[in-house]
Design a protein around this nucleic acid. Structure first.
Length: 488
RNA sequence: CGGGCUAUAGCGCAGUCUGGUAGCGCGUUCGUCUGGGGGACGAGAGGUCGCAGGUUCGAAUCCUGCUAGCCCGACCA
């Protein structure tokens, strides 16, 4: 009984993919107690929050996402390419992590957790201990054993698989985790976009044959499309090179941004494609294949795989060249690791066959940089509603004014009760400073409360993105915010 | 890993050439005035000048070694 692990279903993508259970949050954003409604000790009051914002840009930050993450008090560098995540940055990281979990679970994949430190022996088996080179951080423990800080987990998961699965009846199977990785980059830069330590979702599918594994590939492509779209991102799957993971079939997902590290060539028709809220049956081979077809038919490639002849066949007005940030990649690599590490199962005919595998990754910490690159202005970050650390900002223009204080307090309590996750700027600062702070940290919707408006019974609701303000009663402002976030 | 550069208060910087015991702006603390887009004035706090050694009566400053970090390139999620 290899899979009798409590809440994890033994089998079947069917039930889960058709009725996703959102009560299951692999890692809640924060425990309920975190939000105190009684003693005023909530960390979402800015006067009590830890949000060390900077007026000036630290000199080491070159690109906008890095600058803004430092200025908005999201991260602090601890050494080259290694960062501490301060409360607001950590909150965004958790939001992204949860979206990834939800979409993976929806697709029928099983969350688990593997360690950051691995034994070198497994990597010697696959031959990658030597191949991986200096990017692998090698560590020796007190007994002189060779260890390493995992840059990826193919070996470890294959070892777990071969020790616990013997039969085709336990397939198909996809396991994944979201865990810190380390790749000792020669030259870390761009903040979390290219750190040495990074937070990544990596998943591994095990299937009986190539067709089944290709379905897993397509299923991942679809789940990734949904994941990025939910985060408010336009991520385009592009045919890619397989790199050190190895394998035949691979796509990477790129977010268009001027600061991207890759040059990309694409047919602008692909920008019109949307997953929307279409129902997806992740068990349907046909449906997943059709969606893959839909998204991979328009030309979209990085400079690594670019084919000028194919590109030139696109109507000229749809030919686009720009830059992109890689935020994920999916691979099918067949029996590369199962052969090397002897991961076999018995098939229907009673024969021992190597499993077909693929792996898939989403750079969760890197995504934060990509989102900011794609969504900011000269005042600061503009968070998409789905990933914002705070959904509504409350600006009290005259702290200490009894009426304004009471109105803000009321808004704060009501928004909190509705799960609208407010941040209340209750500092004794001038209006300009409060506006600048809200703009910098990127809160999508701001409610401005001041004595002047309150005389007429109104507050102001302002969109960070458009800058448009509308006056309305506090009750209407709350209702409007609830409406905005209803589908998020 | 090649090439370039930097390290002085929480952040941004000056001072180093020409050695004499450290300064400016922002932030921060207190007070007064202010109060709808980083306000004004006044008074404070805060630095073994990256580390180690050397030269010198005296080193942020000169010399030697080291460490850390940044940028360009090649490489990479």
């Amino acid at each position: 009984m290899p899979f009798a692990y409590g809440f994890l279903p033994h089998k079947g993508y069917c039930q889960q993919s058709k009725a996703p259970d959102y009560r299951f949050h692999p890692r809640p954003l924060w425990p309920k107690e975190y939000i105190s409604k009684t003693n005023g000790a909530s960390p979402m009051r800015m006067s009590r929050y830890f949000l060390p914002i900077l007026k000036e840009t630290p000199s080491e930050a070159q690109i906008v996402s890095h600058r803004l993450m430092l200025r908005a008090g999201m991260i602090r560098q601890s050494s080259a390419g290694i960062y501490s995540w301060l409360p607001m940055g950590f909150k965004v990281l958790r939001r992204l992590e949860n979206i990834v979990h939800e979409e993976q679970i929806r697709a029928g994949h099983h969350p688990m957790l593997m360690p950051t430190l691995q034994s070198a022996d497994l990597w010697r088996e696959s031959g990658r201990y030597e191949d991986y080179g200096d990017e692998m951080l090698r560590i020796t423990d007190r007994h002189g054993r060779d260890m390493l800080y995992g840059p990826t987990n193919e070996e470890l998961i294959t070892d777990i698989f071969r020790n616990n699965v013997q039969s085709y009846k336990d397939l198909p199977l996809t396991l994944y985790h979201i865990q810190w990785k380390f790749r000792d980059e020669r030259r870390p830069r761009f903040g979390v976009m290219r750190g040495r330590e990074f937070f990544m979702k990596d998943g591994y599918n095990f299937d009986i044959d190539k067709d089944a594994a290709l379905h897993a590939y397509n299923r991942h492509l679809v789940s990734y499309l949904r994941t990025y779209e939910r985060m408010g991102l336009k991520a385009i799957p592009m045919r890619a090179d397989s790199g050190p993971i190895g394998g035949d079939d691979t796509h990477e997902f790129l977010v268009l941004a001027d600061t991207g590290e890759s040059e990309v060539f694409y047919d602008s028709a692909i920008l019109d494609l949307e997953m929307g809220d279409r129902e997806v049956d992740y068990d349907s081979v046909e449906q997943c294949a059709a969606i893959k077809e839909e998204w991979t038919t328009p030309y979209a490639r990085t400079d690594e795989t670019h084919d000028a002849t194919l590109f030139d066949a696109i109507p000229e007005e749809r030919r686009k060249i720009s830059r992109g940030i890689e935020v994920g990649q999916i691979f099918y690599f067949g029996t590369k690791y199962s052969d090397a590490m002897n991961a076999k199962v018995v098939n229907e005919d009673g024969k021992l066959v190597p499993v077909h595998m693929g792996s898939h990754g989403i750079g969760v910490s890197r995504l934060i940089g990509a989102i900011i690159e794609a969504s900011h202005d000269d005042k600061g970050i503009i968070w998409p509603e789905a990933v914002t650390p705070f959904r509504v900002g409350i600006v009290n223009l005259k702290q200490g004014d009894a009426e304004a204080d009471a109105a803000c307090e009321n808004l704060y309590q009501n928004l909190t009760a509705l799960g609208l996750d407010p941040i209340y700027d209750d500092r004794k600062e001038r209006a300009g400073a409060k506006f600048a702070t809200m703009d910098l940290i990127g809160v999508p919707w701001r409610i401005t409360v001041g004595p002047r408006g309150l005389k007429n019974g109104v507050v102001e609701l302002t969109s960070r993105k458009t800058g448009e303000s509308v006056e309305m009663t506090p009750a209407d402002a709350i209702a409007r915010c609830a409406e905005i976030y209803a589908g998020v």
